[in-house]
Design a binder for these strands. Structure first.
Lengths: 343, 343
DNA sequence: ATGAAAGCGCTAACAG
DNA sequence: CTGTTAGCGCTTTCAT
């Protein structure tokens, strides 16, 4: 029952021209008489012709397809993907989805995808930044890769979230509330997010003119709820004796671990402990009380990174030369942080 | 810097055979001498040849690509997509992602995708089941479409969640706890989920030998947190006067609305109202107290639906004749429902 | 400015 | 059993 697709040949015959002319009319390549052009378009209309993308790809080696390598279980994924699609729709590209679990080898996955997919470009946000040699893929395959919030040697970033300022602001807020024992639970130093946040944290003490005499600590952890749980459990004694009075979670997985420990130990926030987390989503405002967060425009992140990638696809000579978009964040104060009277 | 891909021609020359032979060796089509076959495979190895999928598609009209039309903001999406990819990986297919917001025209989106994507099949879970004429797409394009949990005329379902049993069991549980004023907030009757759940709800009274004298009600609503909010607000007086003692939310969007109203009105569960929701995810067990839920194996749903679709792609004559997978659910009792002493 | 023709890499039909 | 060839639908070069 498959409808026999109309081809460029049919259009040519119908319009009484050569197929080359039709092609030129469609692609606007070469000089072409305005009248013949009109005639061709009319035939295209009449016949309901749409070019066969596969055949076109075969010639042009352009596939109008990019792949997204991310961990789709991240709460940020949905909106970012949405932003990406939104931009790609405007330029006729589609997105292929490749989930990247937390400890999988992204390189292998990319190579596998490349073998049977014909991609024009790739957007990645791999779990780790180190030991990931991707530049040979870029060089050998000649297809551009951009990252979201990662620093990977040889691979340009498409977007950078402004972790420094976000964290700086949030920590200053905590300091202004009287907190000194602020624990930043932040994942691994192999991630840009951790490194930049650390700087923002330290700078906050300086900006506030307060010396960090050691109560404030920065904790590396697994980027998982297990990681958050472990960090939080280790912190428990210090929370109980009042050395640590605020928790700053850098990631939603960690945050879930933190919450669990709070619940399991019958702690209450903001009374027993103040909390802030990075990323705003349903949970953060459905919780009672709602929690203070750093929010970032996820849709924009997707949109921007897609824009940069397409730019690189169309102008390969620019590759690596475009400044990544700096994504500003918003600090949303809710009710999860308490005021601390200092003696 | 693009590596010049090695083609079937190179392999043929290197192996000292014709290109037809190479093709046959690769595809296992036609009779072929075991020795020549070996020779060919050796050459393929030596040269690092991988077939060009585009060229292959051009001939075979098979694209090894399917598209997924769903609302990616649904909490179930991630795991379902994961299951789908998992199966598709085993058969060399990739997934193209198409977000379908809540009131968009799925038909138009599919048509647009089809125009420039060359798909072998489609999986959909559109927001509404009615006024969606998809069968002409199937007939004219000749590509199979399967649904997840939807009843769309002419389009076979790939998977069905067992709403009837799930809801039946949960309502019986509520009844056994002494509840009679059970409100099921369930989205729209244009969705299979609502219709089957309704049956399960009503049967629960019968199964428990309890007459529903009207305290128990089933409410249609928008499938959104706004819908849940509205339904819940309307219910508020009845909750306050004790006519309604339990809320059963059929969907996570609705659940968020319910939670908000509970919070905003300083209600507590399970003391003031018992709650159960459909779908288990972070929020439901991070909430304090954790909430009783119906959980379904989301990964399996994706895996199964992908399996059926591929089957339909490979054996078109079967289309519509395979029984959808019935997905069983799990009833997980936590702490959100209270015992009601009946006077 | 435009028609004819080559060829992208592959599969399948056709000879042998 | 295997080599040769046609052709999928398109873009692009080459004449005209």
């Amino acid at each position: 029952m498959k409808k026999n697709k109309v081809t460029i040949k049919d259009v040519a015959k119908h319009a009484g021209v050569g197929i080359g002319t039709v092609s030129r009319a469609i692609n606007g390549s070469g000089e072409i008489n305005a009248e013949t052009k009109l005639k061709v378009f009319k035939s295209i209309q009449d016949l309901g012709y749409t070019p066969n993308r596969i055949a076109r790809s075969m010639r042009t080696k352009q596939y109008k397809q990019i792949a997204l390598f991310v961990n789709i279980s991240n709460v940020a994924f949905t909106q970012i993907a949405n932003g990406i699609s939104q931009y790609l729709d405007t330029v006729g590209y589609s997105v292929s989805l490749c989930n990247v679990g937390d400890d999988e080898d992204v390189r292998v996955k990319i190579l596998a995808a490349l073998e049977n997919q014909h991609l024009d470009g790739i957007i990645i946000a791999p779990p780790r930044e180190d030991n990931l040699n991707l530049s040979e893929i870029v060089n050998q395959m000649g297809i551009p890769i951009v990252t979201m919030d990662r620093d990977i040697p040889g691979i340009p970033a498409g977007v950078y979230t402004d972790y420094f300022t976000s964290v700086n602001k949030a920590v200053q807020y905590l300091l202004s509330l009287g907190h000194r024992g602020i624990a930043l639970i932040g994942g691994s130093h192999t991630r840009r997010q951790f490194r930049k946040s650390k700087e923002g944290y330290e700078q906050a003490f300086i900006d506030s003119g307060i010396e960090n005499t050691g109560e404030g600590i920065i904790i590396e952890s697994d980027l998982s709820s297990q990681g958050g749980k472990k960090a939080m459990n280790d912190l428990l004694p210090k929370i109980r004796n009042g050395t640590i009075t605020a928790i700053f979670s850098l990631n939603h997985y960690i945050f879930h671990g933190v919450l669990q420990v709070i619940r399991d130990n019958h702690l209450r926030y903001p009374e027993d402990i103040s909390i802030i987390t990075f990323e705003d989503y349903e949970l953060t405002h459905l919780l009672d009380p709602p929690v203070t967060v750093i929010r970032r425009p996820l849709n924009d992140i997707g949109y921007s990174v897609a824009q940069i990638l397409i730019r690189y696809i169309n102008e390969p000579e620019l590759y690596g030369k475009i400044e990544p978009f700096r994504i500003p964040t918003e600090f949303i104060i809710r009710e999860s942080c308490g005021f601390l009277k200092r003696q």
